[in-house]
Every structure is written in C-alpha cells, then in structure tokens.
Write a protein that binds this DNA or RNA. Structure first.
Lengths: 226, 226
DNA sequence: AATTTATCAGAAACACTGTTACCAAACAAT
DNA sequence: ATTGTTTGGTAACAGTGTTTCTGATAAATT
C-alpha cells in the first residue's frame, strides 16, 4: 500500500505523498504529519501514537518529526489544537435555545458526546494520555476558543442577572467544565461502571450544576445565605 | 546504603533484607515489595515506579516482581489498595459535624488535602498515571471502603429526608466524587492555573454541590420541578 | 543419607519506547 | 565546477515491560 512510483508522475495529483510535499514548504509537511498522527490517534488510540509509527505511516524517518516538532510533545500539542477544533465544531452544531439553562444542558450533552465520539482526542487533551504533557499557552487559548459558546451563554446569563453574583464568568465555566469532566474521566478510568450508568450520572451532575448555577427565578424564593 | 553483610548476622535484626525474608512465606515478601514501590511512588512520583527500579531498591531481580504480581499492573493494584488505606485514614480523621452538609464540606476538603498531600497516590489511583490500569473488583471494593464515611453521611442524610428523593445513595456519592475529582484532575493536568486558583474553584464546586444535594430546609421554599 | 526432582531467582535478551549522533546525499551559492 | 550548508536516513543509546534460559537451591523420594 506504500510503494508509490515517485519518479513517474509527480504532478498528476497534487500534494499527496511525502516525497512530493517535501519539495513544498515545511508548513504543508507539518499538516501532513499531524494528519497522519491524527488518523493513528483515532484509529488505534493514544498509546498507538508513537513517533516511529507516525514516521512509518509517512514512509519516512523519525528525524523529520523531530525536525518539525522538536519532540513528541510538540506533535501532541498540534493534536491538542486539532482536538480543540473538533470540540469547537461540536459546540457550534449544538442546537441553541432561548433559555440559558437549556443552552447549558445542550452544551453539556454535546461535551459528553464529544468525549464518546472522539474519546482518543479527549484522552489526549484532558485525560493525561501522554504522561508529561501540559498544555502550553497556545493550547490553553485553543481550549478557550473551543469553549467560546459556553462563555457566551454564561456571560449573557450573567448580564440578565440569572447567575448568583458570587460567581464570575471564569468561575462558572470552571465549575461547569470540571464537574462534567470529572464524570467522564472517572468513567474512562473504570470507576463508574458501564456507559449507561456513567451517562446517567453525567446527566444528573449536569442538571444539578445547571440548576444551581441558574437557580429558578419563577418563584420569589429569597436566596438565603445563613 | 544497600551493602548489607548478609552472611554474618542473620538473626540479629528480624526481617529486613530481601534474602532474609525470602526464607519466610511469600506474603511478607509481597509486603516488602509493595513498601519499596510505595516509597518510590511517594519520593519520585508515579513515572519513577518502574519494575527495574523497584527490583533495584529490593536488591533483587525483576523476576521476583513478576513471580509475585504477574505483571506491573498487579503491583499497581496493590499500590492502589495502599492508597485506599491512606485515603480512608484521612477520611476517618476528618472532624465530624452534626450538620450533614458541614460533614460533606469537611469530607470534600479532606479529599482535596489528600490529593495534594498524596498526589502520586492520587494520580496512580484516579489520574490514570499508568496508561492501561483499570481497577479490578478488589480495587473497587477498596475505594468503597475508603469512602465509607461519605456513604454513612449521605445515607443518614437521606434517612432524615434531607436529600431530594430523585437521588439514591450511589448517585449522590458519584456526583459528589466526580465533580470534585474533575477539579483536581483538571488542575493536575495544568488546565486550572495555580494552586490557589484551583483550590478556589474546588471550594466553589464543593459548596455548590453540597448546597444542591442538601438544599436548605430552613425556609418553606417549595421544591418546584417545572 | 544420598540422589533425584522440582522449584526458584538471576542474567541476559526481546520488543518496544523517545531521542540523538553520525554520515552521506542533495541542494544552494559562490 | 567547487565549495558550503542544509537535510534526512541509519544506527545507536538509554530506558521501559516482559520472557527465556540456565544454574543454583530447596524439596522429595528412594
């Protein structure tokens, strides 16, 4: 499957094999490597993403990966950003509701779906699949933009005075994110039984958090803090 | 520090070196290995717990570890149980309050302290430090007994009718545990900034969860579910 | 008690991993 | 055309989990 005839038709197709792209700038090459790593990640899981396997899939030496990404962590960072895009897409496709609470419930469910559909990406990004991988500033920015929908909804809800004043936007995002993350990660670690059971816990946690962050304002129940 | 004179005085001290214990039953030997691995875990972190390093600390071959624990995962399981004991101790030493809500707040804070004090254990048990380590039945039982205090408090609160009827005991435990776990794990993954910031988020999440799980009954505010 | 048998542990090797040093080939520039 | 420089492939290093082989030691049997 990897024995291409390089010498014959270079220009018949545009930019496919490694040898062809090598003649182009390194940026395309980087994308090609990230793509190879990404398919490896999704097809065989995070532990299958090894420098040698990526190089093998690219039909080249491991040296190229190190020339382009310094080390494995550099490649992992690119995959992280790739995952951020996927997560952002999922969030953007989430149906919006007029009710902020319903919005958060929808986004929360989307986050669960993402963790299941792209579990390898989730493990790479948030699960600590690569032992010593801490997101750098660019990665953190990527996370922020991926969760832009979340920020918007929460920020709007705050402007409407729907969220108790003790919480600022960042706090709400963190509480929301961390709580849901905890259920997913604990499930993936084998601590919450089967999928159905874990998803049930997830939904309960989601509704609980949303219910607390956006308390019901339909009744004049005074918020007591004694 | 590891050059003992074996041939001379075997009975002067009781059960210290590997050679001495080898003559005893294998159970003591297992404990000795687990202890060596445990100190390695606490002193140098989870990634330092390697079969070779443990064997080196025991001054023996790696074969013994495999004879006693089948594979590395088997040793990890024992460390997991060890961590459960530590967690159980921390929970037992937690000051008890008459108010169930305060009890949960205390236990929650203890869980945070545990994750900070025994971070290596935490990563091993819940953080997925060893890539393909899923807790077996014994480990899950260990977790349950470690969280016995939690179960007791929640169960009692339920008997007093302080917890909304939609939640059974296991659900409450899971929601509580997962939410707090999420904050800790996200922090350890470098997603929540520095310790102070993370601890603040932790406390907010904790009080939010407890407040929702044990809604204030001091005022006759009807629980509306529309 | 002597000899056979079975068990056990240590050294070394295997198959991996991330990473680097070396070196030849291809490209660029004078 | 001859330098100089970049570049990428091979092979190696250091480390991992795990297994195989072999010698020594303990146990069992005559």
């Amino acid at each position: 499957m990897s024995g291409q005839d390089i010498s014959s038709n270079v220009n018949s197709r545009n930019l496919k094999t490694y040898q062809e792209v090598r003649l182009q700038n390194t940026e395309n090459l980087r994308k090609l490597v990230v793509d190879a790593a990404a398919t490896l990640l999704q097809d065989e899981g995070p532990e299958a993403v090894t420098v040698r396997k990526v190089a093998q899939k690219m039909d080249c030496s491991t040296k190229i990966i190190y020339s382009l990404f310094v080390n494995k962590e550099g490649l992992a960072q690119q995959l992280y950003l790739e995952g951020c895009k996927l997560l952002a897409n999922e969030f953007e496709e989430t149906p919006q509701a007029s009710d902020p609470a319903q919005c958060l419930l929808n986004l929360g469910e989307t986050f669960w779906q993402f963790s299941q559909r792209y579990s390898s990406y989730f493990k790479l990004m948030f699960g600590g699949a690569f032992a010593d991988f801490k997101p750098d500033e660019e990665s953190l920015n990527g996370t922020e933009t991926a969760m832009l929908q979340l920020t918007t909804v929460i920020s709007n809800a705050q402007k409407q005075g729907l969220i108790p004043g003790q919480y600022d936007t960042v706090s709400v995002i963190r509480i929301f994110w961390a709580s849901l993350h905890g259920v997913i990660h604990l499930y993936m670690g084998g601590h919450l039984g089967d999928v159905q059971s874990a998803h049930a816990t997830y939904r309960q946690t989601l509704s609980l958090i949303v219910g607390s962050l956006l308390p019901d304002h339909s009744q004049p129940c005074t918020e007591n803090k004694a």
